[in-house]
């Protein structure tokens, strides 16, 4: 019998039988594509955002629903975005163009500035419709992502060498924004999951990560644990093997990793303290592949990590791409069920 995501999570916690492995592809703006809505309209209407996610969830029944303001934070601090019908917005003009203006920066008010209020309204709408079945929450950038929205990635990265004090000041500012946004979510009963695309070892070395990023992730993780009584979760893009152990030490009890990384290796390094999530390729497999290829890739992930001591959720290695065939998403959820049934037959 099919269970709702909430029933499934509760049963798993108790160690009882479920209907399938948990599965939560990173839907993000793909919900608009699925519903046939222009992304520019979606991003400017809480009702459309909610309708798209409700429609998409009802079709597939995956295990969590979340929306994230992403670049909307830059807009809410005075930046401008470039919108496109089928691509998440990118920042045209950052709130800061150079480090001299750092002191003038004002944190955004999530209930007033830019499109941020839309996300709260949309989350409420989604929860009203499907919250009895599935956890609804928010996504949020990590400190590096938010800082790069403020001043641009290149400025931020060069600043680590040329302006270390200002970079620390900006990362603290970003951390305060993140915690305050998460607090707004918490007051309304929404959990928050972080994602950061700028922690990859191909961008910053382990040394720079420990010097500039780790202290701020620690603040956020500590806050989250105090506020929710459980450890926070984070998606880290790119080549991140070098920081897995750090992430676990900081207290991220749930890690979602890029499809370029090995779940089997992650299990060895952090499986005793962190649940894992991942990591079918959203482009190579889900966008361009066939349902059979999705099935195979999903089975590979499950074979590698389903026995992770702290748990495993089948997912994508990054956000779904626009134009991903719905039958491929269905193939992933089917794989989560078939794999689980096969295993129980063997036992």
């Amino acid at each position: 019998m099919a269970m709702t995501p909430i029933q499934r999570a509760e049963a798993l916690k108790k160690g009882s039988r479920v209907d399938r492995m948990p599965c939560a592809p990173m839907i993000a703006e793909y919900a608009a594509c699925y519903a046939g809505i222009d992304l520019r309209d979606y991003l400017h209407s809480a009702k459309l955002m909610a309708d798209c996610h409700i429609k998409c969830y009802r079709q597939f029944g995956y295990d969590s629903v979340g929306i994230s303001p992403m670049a909307g934070l830059a807009e809410a601090m005075g930046g401008t975005l470039a919108y496109a019908p089928d691509t998440p917005p990118s920042v045209l003009k950052h709130p800061l163009s150079n480090w001299d203006e750092l002191d003038k920066l004002i944190p955004p008010d999530p209930l007033k500035d830019g499109r941020l209020p839309l996300y709260f309204e949309a989350m409420e709408r989604i929860r009203d419709a499907v919250g009895h079945e599935v956890k609804v929450g928010s996504g949020m950038g990590g400190p590096m992502s938010v800082a790069s929205l403020v001043i641009g990635t290149e400025n931020l990265l060069m600043g680590m060498i040329k302006k270390p004090d200002q970079v620390h000041q900006l990362l603290q500012f970003s951390t305060d924004i993140i915690i305050s946004y998460m607090e707004f979510c918490a007051q309304r009963g929404f959990g928050c999951s972080m994602g950061d695309g700028l922690l990859s070892n191909s961008l910053i070395s382990t040394r720079l990560f420990r010097q500039f990023v780790r202290p701020y992730l620690q603040q956020i993780a500590d806050w989250y644990r105090d506020r929710w009584g459980r450890s926070p979760s984070m998606h880290i893009c790119g080549d991140t093997k070098n920081i897995w152990a750090d992430m676990a030490e900081i207290g991220f009890g749930r890690l979602s990793i890029d499809d370029m990384m090995s779940l089997a290796e992650a299990k060895k390094v952090v499986g005793h303290v962190s649940s894992l999530k991942g990591n079918v390729s959203p482009t190579r497999v889900l966008l361009f592949g066939t349902p059979e290829e999705v099935h195979k890739a999903s089975f590979r992930c499950l074979n590698e990590a389903a026995d992770n001591p702290k748990g495993f959720t089948l997912s994508t290695g990054c956000n779904l791409a626009w134009d991903t065939p719905p039958e491929n998403i269905q193939a992933m959820l089917d794989a989560a069920r078939i794999w689980y049934e096969n295993r129980n037959r063997e036992v």
């Binding site: 990265l157 600043g159 060498i161 070892n201 191909s202 961008l203 910053i204 070395s205 382990t206 720079l208």
Partner: peptide, 11 residues
């Protein structure tokens, strides 16, 4: 060799 990363290379 992992001594430098993008920030250093940019400078």
């Amino acid at each position: 060799h992992g001594v430098y990363s993008i920030p250093e290379i940019l400078i």
